[in-house]
Design a protein around this nucleic acid. Sequence first.
DNA 1: CGTCTTGTGTCTTATACAAGACTGTGCGAC
DNA 2: GTCGCACAGTCTTGTATAAGACACAAGACG
Lengths: 241, 241
Amino acid sequence: MRRPDARPLYVQVEAILNDRIVSGSWKSGQAIPAEPELAAELGVSAGTLRRALAGLERRHLIERRQGRGTYVAQQTSQQALGQFFRVRNLAGRPVEPETLITGITTGPASEEEARRLRLAPGEAVHRIDRSRVFEGEPRIAERISLPAAFFPNLLLPLAPKQLGTEIYVHYRNAHGIIVVQAEENLSATAATEADSAVLGCPVGTPLLLIERVTFDAAGRPVELRVSRLDTRAHRYAVEIA
Amino acid sequence: MRRPDARPLYVQVEAILNDRIVSGSWKSGQAIPAEPELAAELGVSAGTLRRALAGLERRHLIERRQGRGTYVAQQTSQQALGQFFRVRNLAGRPVEPETLITGITTGPASEEEARRLRLAPGEAVHRIDRSRVFEGEPRIAERISLPAAFFPNLLLPLAPKQLGTEIYVHYRNAHGIIVVQAEENLSATAATEADSAVLGCPVGTPLLLIERVTFDAAGRPVELRVSRLDTRAHRYAVEIA
DNA sequence: CGTCTTGTGTCTTATACAAGACTGTGCGAC
DNA sequence: GTCGCACAGTCTTGTATAAGACACAAGACG
């Protein structure tokens, strides 16, 4: 007979540890047990455990510091920005966005929202409309759609204050949702009147349209974000390795 | 006194093996010595060697096949496409582009070409103008600029035949240049008359402008490519992990 | 304020076995 | 005799274990 679980041991261990983080039994920022101790608890060798930890580190779920210990990653605004925010100025430097919330609503999912977020048609979603301001100029108009089931009524009361900064930090701290991956589809589109009003560009200006679906550590889609970027003074940077 | 080379041993080994591939002493597609043999030759343990090999595999410089051996990666058209070509149709599926060469010239580098390719002002570059055709429709107009120093007069005689397919394969086979990394800057722009003629879209149609600089395994910029993508039926897909 | 000790992650080595891939042998069918 | 197939042997990479030296961080101690 074969092993009950054919996956390599280090993969299984990684899944176990991933679960501990996702389920919240290891909390954000907390130190996890030392390697020898953890290896003993799980009944695997130190090497196997280290291989599993390397996987978690690659996905930014933990941070390892030689001499100090290993910690469940604390999603800071800085990190979330570096990890997910790809807008640069013309000199190639990252920009520090400010945020202006322009509206928050809740309603049934549109066809596209349901499809991208894998929801049943008509399921409730929260929508946040906001603009992002770089160096004093509004450059992005975006709408964020969230499955209401994942973000129960908590959302609305907080409003602009928490949602102004990088929103993923808020997801994590308030809802225990750990964002680890995103898929984006880019295209070009012409500025509508609404875009023009928000971004201060002429109607018809070519904009970079970014459609992002974000996934949590359990692989569930947790956010649909449609951004319209005015590229007259900024670029979207991609590294291909 | 410290170690002469403070980098970890596995990093040093990876650099050595990287050099063997870049310098051509291990040729594309060739099998490299078996792990125990190579480890002995380099005077390191099997574990250390394996860690170095893992790094090379991650950068697609080698391919390892259990039971068969480890081979210097052969850049096939398929691979190059999967690795560097991010255009998808509206269903999210990769497209198979055909290519139409519209012009090949050589001349002194423009200011931008010199800056992006790290050339002295006025150094010679080859330029290839071509369009890429998806499902019968031309969707990309692009210009590829290559430092003439890296691609000596070989280039012109070959012309459309070899340059039609994925060009990176040609780089590798004919010039020994191994492409491993690229940086892209994306923005939106309006179709010019020239774009309109090539792509068959109205002047002013928003296009996705892709400015790519490609680097070889030694870290040198070897290509500047400016592509203009008609996004009416296609998207540029990015995965963020 | 420097030094020591302790606890942590990092690197390197060594060994064993598992699993995939190829080769050749030998047996049986025809 | 020759073809075809099963199977053992052997070479390869992949997985897992164990042990020790090392480097870094923090706190205790003098």
